[in-house]
Simulated scan of single mutants.
Amino acid sequence: MLWDSAQTARAHDSTLFDATRREDSPMRARAMQGRSASNWRAVHRAQHFLATPGGWLFVTLAVVILVIMATTPRHVSSVLDQDNYLEYFRRTTWDWFVSTYKARTSTLSFVISTVTEEFGWRAWVVGLNALGFTPETGVRITVVMLNALVFIALLEVRRPLLGLVLWAVVPMALATVGTFQIRQGMAFGIAMLFTLRYHRPVTGWVLACFIHTTFAIPALLLLTIRLCGDRRRLAFGSASAMAFMLVSSAGFLFKNFGGRRIEEYSGYQNDFTIKLVVLLVIYMTASIVFLYSEWKNRPDAKSTVWTELCTMHIVLVLYLLLAFLLFPFGKGRVWYCIPLMMTFIVPQIRFRNAFSIWWVVGIMLVLSAEVIKSYYEGVYAYFIGS
């Protein structure tokens, strides 16, 4: 009798499990179908744009840029950091990973070193070396690839052609991280591709940390914002608190985990002037305009990767303001993210009213002044000569 009861109970549980699975299956199927539909819409939108005259111009300009990057001579005397990257490719081998692991003082220190020593970048270099490429070819492949990643990500914005033009003219974009500070350019391309194409912003920016250490700060801010969900005020408040905590602990972090970066970035705080702070604040207002345009028409709209990205953009400027006041050395190269992200955010803004239009025009005027200044400083010499 007891055996029959047990059998009956097991049969009952099996029936309940099957029923629950049948109920969950449609929900799971709808979720998977929703993700597939979102990816399909993204691909369809990109394909539709590329079939237009604007899309043809986008492809033409992108191909021209990539051809220039692939064929133009990269002499050590004319391209900043070229010699440093050649040394990366000459010295980084599998033995580098083995020696770094053996030199660890603890498991925690080794885990932290995967970011501070940029293991992702090292793995990329070892992979290219394993394929038999020379250091010069490895650098050139990296330059072409990082710009291609940015171009693919730009296809996800509302006006891809405008984004590509901005990438070409913003001094910190193509002329800097797209040409010679290529670790940061590669990290930025990966971050934006995962954020916009695959809707995985935290994944993208965390992966970027393993390519360039400075991306750890925006990654932590973005993670804090993501944990707050659709609660906007809480997201701003929590991310701002995180920014203050990062600035307050920056001295300790750089001292204990900065490694070789301490000496390399020791002079970077000298150019952290009030003029740069004002410029970053102006560029940051592009995110404010975006959020204003979105939330004014849909006040109850749920958080998206774009709202998370713009929120992080704003709070990152707050971090830099705090760093300017409390710990200028904490600026590093993280400030590059402000003008770089503007090349994506401005083309995504909906021009719903005159305020949005004129404010963006004002930002473009400031950018134009910066472009003219950079031209006379020789920033674009690689493309148009001295």
Rank of each mutant, 00 (worst) to 15 (best):
A103F: 07
R90Y: 04
Y88N: 00
W94Q: 02
T100E: 04
L86E: 04
V63L: 03
R21K: 05
D83H: 03
D13H: 13
Y101L: 12
S25Y: 13
V59N: 01
S25K: 09
R41P: 02
Y85K: 01
T114C: 06
Q33D: 15
R90W: 03
A19V: 10
A70F: 02
L61V: 03
I65S: 02
A51F: 08
Y101K: 10
V67Q: 05
A42V: 11
L86A: 07
S99E: 14
S14C: 09
R10D: 12
L16V: 11
A103V: 06
V64A: 15
M69R: 09
G54R: 09
W56S: 12
T52N: 08
T20L: 13
H12M: 10
V111I: 09
T15F: 15
G54S: 14
V79H: 00
V79M: 00
V111K: 06
S14P: 05
A31C: 10
T20I: 08
R74Q: 00
A9H: 14
T8H: 13
R28Q: 08
T52D: 09
V79C: 00
V115M: 03
W94G: 02
P26A: 15
E117N: 09
F119D: 09
T60K: 10
L86S: 02
A19F: 14
L86N: 04
A37V: 07
R28N: 08
F110R: 07
T114Y: 05
Q82C: 00
D95C: 05
R30K: 13
T15A: 15
D24I: 08
A29S: 15
S14G: 14
R28K: 07
W96G: 01
Y85H: 01
W96T: 01
R90D: 04
S109L: 12
A62S: 10
S78N: 02
T92K: 01
S36T: 14
L16H: 11
